[in-house]
Amino acid sequence: MSDVPILKVENLCKSYGDLEVLKSVSFEIYKGEKKVFVGPSGTGKSTLLRCINQLTIPDSGFVYLNGEEIVHSGKKINGYRQKMGMVFQNFNLFDHLTAVRNVELALLKVKKLDKAAAHEKAMYELEQVGMADRADFYPAQLSGGQAQRVSIARALAMDPEVMLFDEPTSALDPELKREVMEVMRKLADRGMTCIVVTHEMKFATSFATEIYLMEKGEIVEHGPPSDIPTSPGFVKTRAFMGSYVEE
């Protein structure tokens, strides 16, 4: 564990009109850690992730990536975003491109790799998520689980230092959830730093190094997975939580 956290979030606030979605959220994450955010719907978990990579601009607060402040970084944010791979609830694969070209696009246009190198890298990443045999399929021809695995490969191709997962399995059937969770575990085993927002408590407790419980825009409790399920805060909010999917 190095001295500087990969990511440090300090007093992040975000409001939409009168609705305070994030109320001064702070936490930090070191290399190889896996932090999982749980809590009822509408408590600002997804907004938190988007405020981290600036897809949503926070009203106030700071985000440090390897010690560099990125909220007010202007155009440099495009470089920082590559270091923070993001996986969306609805996959958001580029509908007009095949799986492999989904992965290649940013390699060509952002990393400026040549075609051959981009293709090779894309195929490697697809292989890592077990999707190499579907490389030439379009998103509409893939199952939800397959599409999500491709979107993970797409994010990984940019060689991120931290992965942000925004409810990666919420849009999936139980069987399909499993294949995505397996890919995430493999990734974690390889030492990838992960921040995950999820409703899957079983997955959270077995995956996380630390679980954060959010409620109404605030972190109300956090601790190792062994503590959280029995903590008073969690017991109280448990009723509002999503399914307890067995893996």
Partner: peptide
């Protein structure tokens, strides 16, 4: 076109124009 398409592009480091 769904907003998520542009969000995904930007999350990969593309500029808005790209």
């Amino acid at each position: 076109i769904k907003r998520g398409q542009l969000l995904a592009a930007r999350s990969l480091g593309m500029t808005k124009m790209q």
